[in-house]
Design a protein around this nucleic acid. Structure first.
Length: 198
DNA sequence: ACATTAAGTGGTG
DNA sequence: CACCACTTAATGT
């Protein structure tokens, strides 16, 4: 995990729980807390004017969400939504900042974490900006498999719905479904009972 | 049995 | 591809 729970506790950290589809925070709100996921999954999304959802990222246990907003004076650019039942540790902004000042190594960990997230954004941007649907989908699949150690063929089960893959890639559901079937024929992925293995 | 959600198909622009 | 309409399968209450 990014930051030790005991340390967060000693700086006023408290645990709050969310049910599926609950908001941890919403777009345009002013960031006041540091959030670190204890269990469950949280997605960062944005709804376009016509109602289409763009998923900016999906985070799980041990990771923090939008901590970078605590270092600048801006409102949240995205919503944080619980994708399952979630337990989250939250720490007041001022206490969080004080903790970083008191613990240099923790501060470095946070720097690295933010840097890695930014690095990911570069990769994702390049994938989404000027590529075919097939390349976009492959990019998303690779992005999630990168978090696992097993790199062998079909070792990773994509635990996302076709719709979620669409919201991540900026494509429509139908396109995702059709492309996945094509990728299966090409032996790039395997599909069993609707589940995608990559 | 009825409602809901996700996967999948056809066809048009 | 996006968009629209619709069918099918699986779950849930």
């Amino acid at each position: 995990m990014l930051i030790n729970h005991d340390l967060l506790n000693s700086y006023g950290g408290e645990i709050i729980t969310f049910k599926t589809n609950d908001y941890i925070f919403q777009e345009q709100q002013i960031p006041k807390y540091y959030y670190q996921i204890i269990s469950g999954h949280i997605k960062l999304n944005h709804l376009s004017e016509d109602g289409k959802e763009l998923i900016q990222g999906i985070h799980s246990a041990g990771e923090s969400v939008c901590e970078l907003l605590l270092f600048i004076d801006e409102k949240y650019p995205v919503n944080a939504v619980a994708m399952s039942e979630c337990a989250v540790m939250k720490v007041f902004k001022s206490d969080f900042i004080r903790m970083l000042e008191d613990h240099r190594h923790v501060s470095e960990d946070v720097h690295k974490y933010i840097s890695y997230r930014l690095f990911e954004k570069f990769i994702m941007m390049q994938n989404l900006a000027a590529h075919s649907a097939e390349t976009r989908i492959k990019g998303i699949l690779q992005y999630f498999k990168n978090y696992t150690n097993d790199k062998s063929l079909y070792s990773y089960e994509i635990k996302l719905t076709r719709q979620q893959l669409a919201s991540l890639s900026g494509l429509r559901v139908e396109t995702v479904i059709r492309r996945l079937k094509k990728l299966e024929k090409e032996k790039f992925i395997k599909i069993e009972n609707g589940k995608v293995y990559y």
